[in-house]
Design a protein around this nucleic acid. Structure first.
Length: 221
DNA sequence: TGTTGATCATGC
DNA sequence: GCATGATCAACA
């Protein structure tokens, strides 16, 4: 199953096929070993599902399925089917923001078409035994689209005004802006309060847990 | 107990 | 460092 799917139907068939499987079974089918825990393998679940579904590997700023325009997101859920974590969307540009609009943004593009695959995320379950849930192909409705745009514009405006370091993760209804870095020493260029360049932590856009929770509930309830 | 800020692995 | 894949763990 390493080849890219040709159609969304085919992609969904593959996703449905592994619903109910344990990650260890998928790993075995791919000749991979499941780690004992995710502490040092935080992206393992996502990468495993990428392999199985035939997503294009690599770290390019493209959708996971470029031909289909579909982004894959695995999402850890608790026993009630509720997301346990926020969902990373994309890095936030911190310079060269002049003239950048929502429609041109990576966030807008990535969220146009998302394949959500819930996976048991309770830390008491070893990764190999975690079960894959039913996939959900999602596109934001008009309301969501508008709220996402409002959040994005508000955050980007602050960044453009040199206030990136005043932005807190409390801000934003659906989207939040938080550090996205290897560690606190990984710095990148941004606009400072006086309009001069400063070095600051790279930031990323995340979807709030409460939003993805609603999203999953709306579909599966 | 939910969230925020920090962190881990990998490829280039 | 940047972009991919995210989860960890301290704190409110």
């Amino acid at each position: 199953m390493h080849n890219p799917p040709d159609t969304i139907d085919q992609l969904m068939q593959r996703a449905h096929h592994i619903a109910g499987w344990q990650l260890g079974e998928i790993a075995a089918a791919l000749d991979l070993q499941a780690p004992a825990h995710l502490r040092q393998h935080k992206g393992w679940v996502g990468q495993l599902l990428e392999l199985w579904l035939g997503a294009s590997a690599g770290s390019r700023p493209e959708p996971d399925f470029p031909q289909l325009g579909v982004e894959l997101k695995t999402i850890p859920i608790d026993a009630q089917g509720r997301p346990l974590e926020s969902t990373y969307v994309s890095v936030c540009p911190l310079t060269g923001l002049h003239g950048l609009g929502w429609q041109d943004s990576a966030v807008c593009h990535k969220l146009q078409h998302v394949l959500w695959i819930p996976v048991q995320g309770d830390k008491s379950i070893p990764p190999a035994q975690r079960q894959v849930g039913m996939p959900l192909l999602w596109q934001p409705d008009d309301n969501e689209q508008q709220q996402l745009q409002r959040d994005w514009e508000e955050l980007i405006e602050q960044v453009a005004l040199g206030k990136v370091e005043q932005i807190t993760a409390h801000q934003g209804e659906l989207l939040q802006l938080r550090p996205k870095a290897a560690n606190r020493k990984a710095l990148t260029e941004a606009i400072g309060p006086d309009g001069r360049k400063i070095m600051t932590l790279p930031r990323g856009f995340y979807l709030r847990t409460r939003f993805t929770r609603q999203l999953l509930q709306r579909h599966f309830l």
